[in-house]
Nucleic acid binder design. Structure first.
Length: 504
DNA sequence: TTTTGAGTTGTTCGA
DNA sequence: GTCGAACAACTCAAA
C-alpha cells in the first residue's frame, strides 16, 4: 500500500466473522505492513418497516427473529474485533451514505467488503467503487459468502442455470473453492490506532439503542436455549455436527424429531461461518462420516449456492414469480382468507404435522427442513394462498431467513420456482406425518394437547371416535382445531387451479 | 444442428 | 401389502 498510516475501512454486512473473512483479512494484512488502523462498520438499513421496502435496490430490513439473531451476532463480532484492536462502528441509515460519511470521518483511504448478491448489495458495490475512484480512495470487494461468485458459473450456452443438477455439477467441476483464511493477527497498538479507536467510540451508535431484541412480550426467550448466534457458536455447531450427527445425515435428515441436521442455516445467513469453512471441514471429515453423507450435506450447500445464483440473476425473486405463468394463478380470495392465513401462522390448521411445524417456528425461530416443505405446500396448495404470504411470514419469524434461500425455496415449493416441484406434487400432511414422524414424537413436542393420542391417530385425530378422543383429553374444535380444510377437497381444488393456469 | 434423456424432497390408483 | 404408471412442461447437456 502506497500511503502509510492511511486507515482502512472494512464494511460488514452478512459476513459477521473474523476468521476466513477476505475483506477483513486483506485490510488487516495491508494495515499491518503500514502500521495503519483498521475500522469496521456495520450499517443497519431500516428506514422502512420490517419486511417492506420501496424497491429491490433497497436492502430488506431484517424481520423480528432476524433482529434478535443480529443483535447477538453483532455483540459477538464487536468482542472478536476488539481482540484484534479493530473498533466496530454501528450506524443506522442508508448504507452508501453512511459509508461515505464514516470514511470521511476517519480519513479512510482503503475500503474493503465482501460482496452481497441481492440487488441492494450489487448497487451498493457499484456506487462505492465509483465514489472511491473519484475521491482517490481504493475500494475492493471480495467473495466472502459463496463457494463461487454467481456470475462465474454459466451453462454451455453462456446463460445462468435454471436446473439444480447441472448447476451443482458445474460447481463441483470448478474445483475446490479458495483456501480458508486464518484469523488475522491483532494490530499493534500505536498512538494513531488508539486515537481512531477513541474517535469510533464517539461516532458509533449503541447496539442497545437499536432495540433489536423483543421487549414486551419477550417472544424470543425460547430461542437462546438451542441457538447460539455468533462465530463461536457457528464453529461449535459445525464441529458437533461433523463429530456426532453427520454420519446419519443422508438417511436421518428427513426426520424432524431426529436431530440429524446441521442447524447451521442462520450462522451461514449472517456469515458467522463461511461456506468454504463448511466445505473444507466436511471434506476433511468425509472418511469418518461416509462419502454418501458428506456428498448429501455438501449438496445442501449447493442449494444455498443455487439460490444465490438465482437471486443474482433475478433481483426481484422475492416478489415476482420466477415462472411468469403463475402470474395468472387465481389464489384463494374468500372472505375467510385472512382467518385461514392466521390459522396457518399460529399452528391451528387441525393438521398436527403442519401445526407442530408452525409452532416450532414461532417458539424456536427455526423449523426442520422436511416440515418447511409440508407447511409451505399446505399454504400454497391446500389453502391456495399466494406463496408471498408464506415468504413474508417466514421472513419475520425465521432466524435464518435469507434473501436468497427464503425466496427461492418458497418459489420452489409453490411450483413457480427454478427446478420446482410439478404442480401435481401436493404433500399429503397425514402421509408426511406418518412417514417422517411415525411415533409422533415431533408432534407431541410442539402440539402437547395431542400428547395422549396414540400413534395411529396422532396425524389424523379427527378420524378417531369422539369417545376415544375424550379419553385422550381431546375435544376437536375446542382443545384442538378440526381441520380447517379437508385434504381431498383441497387437493382437487389445487389441481384444478394449477391446471387451469397452465392452459391460459 | 437436432435429438434425446434426465431432472431434490410426492400421491394416487389400479393391477 | 407392493409396484408401476400417470400426473406437464421445460431446461440443460450429451450424443
Amino acid at each position: 500500500m502506497a500511503n502509510p498510516a492511511v486507515p482502512f475501512l472494512v464494511i460488514y454486512s452478512s459476513d459477521l466473522r473474523v476468521a476466513d473473512n477476505p475483506a477483513l483479512h486483506a485490510a488487516m494484512t495491508a494495515a499491518k505492513d503500514d502500521g495503519a488502523p483498521v475500522v469496521a462498520l456495520y450499517v443497519l438499513e431500516e428506514a422502512f418497516e420490517a419486511g417492506t421496502r420501496p424497491s429491490t435496490e433497497t436492502a430488506r430490513a431484517p424481520g423480528g427473529a432476524g433482529r434478535w439473531w443480529l443483535h447477538h451476532s453483532l455483540e459477538a463480532l464487536a468482542r472478536a474485533l476488539e481482540d484484534l484492536h479493530v473498533p466496530l462502528v454501528l450506524r443506522k441509515g442508508e448504507r452508501t451514505v453512511i459509508v461515505k460519511e464514516i470514511a470521511d470521518e476517519i480519513g479512510a483511504g482503503h475500503l474493503t467488503w465482501n460482496r452481497q448478491y441481492d440487488a441492494a448489495g450489487v448497487a451498493f458495490g457499484k456506487a462505492i467503487k465509483q465514489w472511491a475512484k473519484t475521491g482517490g480512495r481504493t475500494a475492493k470487494s471480495y467473495n466472502g459468502g459463496l463457494l463461487h461468485d454467481p456470475y462465474t458459473l454459466k451453462t454451455k450456452s453462456g446463460g445462468p442455470f435454471r436446473v439444480f443438477s447441472p448447476f451443482w455439477k458445474a460447481c463441483l467441476a470448478a474445483g475446490d473453492p479458495v483456501n480458508v483464511l486464518p484469523e488475522p493477527a491483532a494490530l499493534v497498538k500505536n498512538p494513531q490506532v488508539n486515537e481512531i479507536h477513541a474517535r469510533c467510540e464517539m461516532i458509533s451508535e449503541r447496539l442497545a439503542d437499536w432495540r433489536l431484541l423483543p421487549e414486551k412480550p419477550d417472544w424470543a426467550k425460547g430461542f437462546a436455549k438451542h441457538l447460539q448466534p455468533g462465530e463461536a457458536g457457528a464453529k461449535a455447531r459445525l464441529e458437533d455436527f461433523l463429530a456426532e450427527r453427520a454420519q446419519y445425515y443422508a438417511d436421518g435428515r428427513d426426520f424432524p424429531a431426529g436431530n440429524n441436521t446441521s442447524r447451521l442455516s442462520a450462522h451461514l445467513r449472517y456469515g458467522e461461518i463461511s461456506p468454504q469453512q463448511v466445505w473444507t471441514a466436511t471434506k476433511n471429515a468425509a472418511a469418518a462420516i461416509g462419502r454418501k453423507n458428506a456428498d448429501k450435506f455438501l449438496a445442501e450447500l449447493g442449494w444455498r449456492e443455487f439460490s444465490h445464483h438465482l437471486l443474482y440473476h433475478n433481483p426481484d425473486l422475492a416478489t415476482a414469480n420466477f415462472n411468469p405463468k403463475f402470474d395468472d394463478l387465481e389464489w384463494y380470495d374468500g372472505a375467510d382468507a385472512e382467518t385461514l392465513l392466521r390459522a396457518w401462522q399460529k399452528g391451528r390448521t387441525g393438521y398436527p404435522i403442519v401445526d407442530a411445524g408452525m409452532r416450532e417456528l414461532w417458539q424456536t425461530g427455526i423449523m426442520h427442513n422436511r416440515v418447511r416443505m409440508v407447511v409451505g405446500s399446505f399454504l400454497v396448495k391446500h389453502l391456495l394462498m399466494d406463496w408471498r404470504h408464506g415468504e413474508t411470514w417466514f421472513w419475520d419469524t425465521l432466524v435464518d431467513a435469507c434473501p436468497a434461500n427464503n425466496t427461492a425455496s418458497w418459489q420452489w415449493v409453490a411450483g413457480c420456482g427454478a427446478d420446482a416441484a410439478p404442480y401435481f406434487r401436493i404433500f399429503n400432511p397425514i402421509l408426511q406425518g406418518e412417514k417422517f414422524d411415525a411415533d409422533g414424537t415431533y408432534v407431541r413436542q410442539f402440539v402437547p394437547e395431542l400428547a395422549k393420542v396414540p400413534n395411529n391417530f396422532i396425524h389424523k385425530p379427527w378420524a378417531a371416535a369422539v369417545s376415544d378422543l375424550e379419553k385422550w383429553g381431546v375435544r376437536l374444535g375446542e382443545t384442538y382445531p378440526a381441520p380447517i380444510v379437508a385434504h381431498e377437497f383441497a387437493r382437487e381444488r389445487a389441481l384444478a387451479a394449477f391446471q387451469n393456469m397452465k392452459q391460459e
